[in-house]
Lab assay of single mutants.
Amino acid sequence: QLNAMAHQIQEMFPQVPYHLVLQDLQLTRSVEITTDNILEGRIQVP
């Protein structure tokens, strides 16, 4: 299920590496919260 959620987020934010999306999802278990984390700059994109 997390993989499906990660792919959904990757479609919206292809610039964010998959492993970072998955790592955040493991903590949040939420597409909405992880999306917010990306938008708020809480996930550092190399």
Rank of each mutant, 00 (worst) to 15 (best):
Q1V: 13
Q1F: 12
L2A: 04
L2H: 04
L2D: 04
L2N: 03
L2Y: 09
N3A: 15
N3M: 15
N3C: 13
N3H: 15
N3Q: 14
N3I: 15
N3F: 14
A4D: 09
A4F: 12
A4C: 09
A4L: 12
A4P: 05
A4Y: 13
A4Q: 12
A4E: 13
M5W: 15
M5C: 07
M5D: 06
M5Q: 06
A6R: 02
A6V: 11
A6F: 06
H7N: 12
H7V: 11
H7T: 12
H7K: 15
H7L: 14
Q8H: 09
Q8K: 13
Q8A: 13
Q8N: 07
Q8L: 14
I9E: 00
I9P: 00
I9N: 00
I9M: 06
I9Y: 02
I9V: 10
I9D: 00
I9W: 02
I9S: 00
Q10D: 02
Q10A: 15
Q10L: 11
Q10K: 13
Q10W: 15
E11Q: 15
E11I: 14
E11P: 02
M12I: 10
M12L: 11
M12F: 08
M12N: 08
F13Q: 01
F13W: 06
F13P: 00
F13G: 01
P14W: 04
P14L: 03
P14C: 05
P14A: 04
P14S: 04
Q15V: 06
Q15W: 14
Q15P: 02
Q15S: 12
V16L: 11
V16D: 03
V16E: 02
P17R: 03
P17L: 06
P17K: 05
P17G: 03
P17W: 05
P17C: 05
P17S: 06
P17H: 04
P17N: 06
P17T: 04
P17E: 06
Y18G: 04
Y18F: 15
Y18H: 07
Y18A: 06
Y18R: 05
Y18D: 03
H19Q: 10
H19R: 08
L20R: 05
L20Y: 07
L20I: 09
L20Q: 06
L20S: 06
L20K: 05
L20H: 04
L20T: 05
V21N: 01
V21G: 01
L22C: 06
Q23W: 11
Q23D: 06
Q23Y: 07
Q23E: 13
D24W: 05
D24N: 06
D24T: 03
L25G: 01
L25Y: 02
L25V: 05
L25K: 00
Q26E: 14
Q26G: 08
Q26M: 11
Q26S: 09
Q26K: 11
Q26Y: 14
L27E: 13
L27N: 13
L27T: 12
L27F: 10
L27M: 13
L27Y: 11
T28A: 01
T28W: 06
T28V: 01
T28H: 06
T28D: 04
T28L: 02
T28Q: 02
T28R: 00
R29S: 11
R29I: 09
R29T: 09
R29H: 15
S30E: 04
S30H: 03
S30V: 03
S30W: 01
S30N: 08
S30F: 03
S30D: 06
S30K: 05
V31T: 06
V31Q: 07
V31L: 10
V31F: 09
E32N: 08
E32P: 07
E32K: 14
E32D: 09
E32R: 12
I33K: 14
I33S: 08
I33Y: 07
I33A: 14
I33N: 07
I33L: 12
T34S: 04
T34L: 01
T34P: 00
T34N: 00
T34G: 00
T35C: 13
T35Q: 08
T35V: 15
T35W: 07
D36L: 12
D36G: 13
D36T: 15
D36H: 14
N37M: 01
N37W: 02
N37L: 02
N37A: 03
I38W: 04
I38Q: 00
I38M: 03
I38A: 02
L39N: 08
L39S: 07
L39I: 11
L39E: 06
L39M: 10
E40I: 08
E40F: 14
G41V: 03
G41L: 06
G41S: 05
G41Q: 06
G41E: 04
G41F: 05
R42T: 06
R42N: 06
R42V: 05
I43A: 02
I43K: 02
I43Y: 04
Q44V: 13
Q44L: 11
Q44T: 11
Q44M: 11
Q44W: 13
Q44A: 09
V45E: 10
V45Y: 14
V45W: 14
V45P: 09
V45R: 08
V45F: 11
P46I: 13
P46R: 07
